[in-house]
Design a protein around this nucleic acid. Structure first.
Lengths: 220, 220
DNA sequence: AAATATTTTTAGACAAGTCTAAATTTATTT
DNA sequence: AAATAAATTTAGACTTGTCTAAAAATATTT
């Protein structure tokens, strides 16, 4: 089914707001997310329901349908692949990519998506640390959790930060820590919860409990 | 000025049909090119004229304005850069790129265009042999001329054919020659004007004077 | 140069997506 | 459980881009 960019954006918003389809989403929530009037959302929801992409009971919000979920995951896949491309290949900073990816995600060409995926060597995680669904919509990475909960010797990748104060981000930068950095915990001090990690190039870094708490990771 | 994809497509069509702004274009010609009704074209022309992109005298066609020319060249630049990307980087075939590039050309991000250009190493010619305008809209490639006039060892690219009989085109296809093929002349027989060329993959091809005469090329 | 043919424009309508204002339904208070 | 508040839907309108049919202007024929 061929959808307009607008329809795709609604589907994507509903998917995200419903926490991947786990709960219903209210009209106002969507209106808020997309900066539109609630009336516009009502209209669009009716259209999406007619196309069997969402399930709609008047006055009781929408639930995303399996079809809708598939559409959403395909858009998310494209969005995140393009983000990887922009950062890894075109040297964008990871805060410059979102707006452009919002446009690129609507390009309709399965061949382009497949070739881009191949060119990027089938990345599983985007520059923000979010997982990239495969062609079937499957997400092949575990959930995010705080570095504090990571076990000794388990390999992991930094996927996000809980705290985005510039002081904290600067501190990470000084330590050489960024999204996408791979490491494992090699030591843990019971005393103050501080942690020693080892990066890929055998570089060892000491992290305070405070820093560890604000680093979100994923198992490799 | 921010334009819709539709407006951009009209501008592009007018630019091409006017031969880069050299002559006026009639309503029907545009309608034909874009597969729309003449009435729709009339409406759009009025809009583009209001935006000072074209010059319009009722019943006498449109002339593209300098502003419009700039817009057209920017779209053409993006289109051709993306074609280079698709062919060189993502290994698309020559004939698979147009449709996708038609979508990608409307992506609005000067940074993306600049970085793409850089990544592709500032190509001057697209896979079809058409020139890629630079950021200012200048076309920095030499003129087309017959292969007969090309010097020995000079690298060139096939950019057009003078003769479009299917017999000739078929012959070219058999030889593996198409628009965009890069080569140089390695030998020239004084006797009958026949020419030996060498393609990028060191493949050597023998061309009769008759064939050479009908092949238009550009220096690389 | 009058008649005819062609091209172009205008008029009016439609679909998509948006809005505001009013009506309706659901939720919350008292 | 009645009254009030909040959320949602409907109604009607606007914009963009499209169309068909009719009117107007230009071109071509005879």
């Amino acid at each position: 089914m061929k959808l307009s960019s607008t329809e795709e954006n609604y589907i994507k918003a509903i998917y995200h707001l419903s926490n991947a389809g786990e709960k219903a989403v209210s009209t106002n929530t969507i209106a808020d997310e997309l900066n539109t009037a609630a009336a516009s959302v009502s209209d669009m929801i009716k259209k999406l329901a007619n196309k069997k992409l969402v399930n709609y009971k008047k006055y009781h919000g929408v639930n995303i349908d399996d079809n809708g979920k598939k559409v959403a995951l395909s858009i998310i896949r494209k969005h995140r692949l393009w983000e990887v491309f922009l950062v890894d290949t075109l040297n964008f900073n990871w805060d410059e990519v979102h707006e452009v990816a919002e446009q690129l995600e609507h390009i309709d060409s399965p061949l382009l998506t497949a070739r881009l995926d191949q060119f990027l060597d089938y990345p599983k995680i985007d520059p923000h640390g979010d997982p990239i669904p495969d062609e079937e919509g499957n997400i092949n990475v575990g959930p995010q959790f705080s570095l504090l909960e990571l076990g000794l010797q388990e390999e992991a990748i930094i996927t996000a930060v809980e705290n985005s104060e510039s002081l904290f981000l600067q501190h990470l930068d000084n330590l050489g820590l960024r999204l996408g950095v791979r490491f494992k915990i090699i030591e843990r001090a019971e005393f103050d919860g501080s942690i020693m990690i080892q990066l890929e190039e055998d570089k060892k870094i000491f992290l305070s409990k405070e820093v560890a708490k604000n680093l979100l990771v994923r198992n490799l």
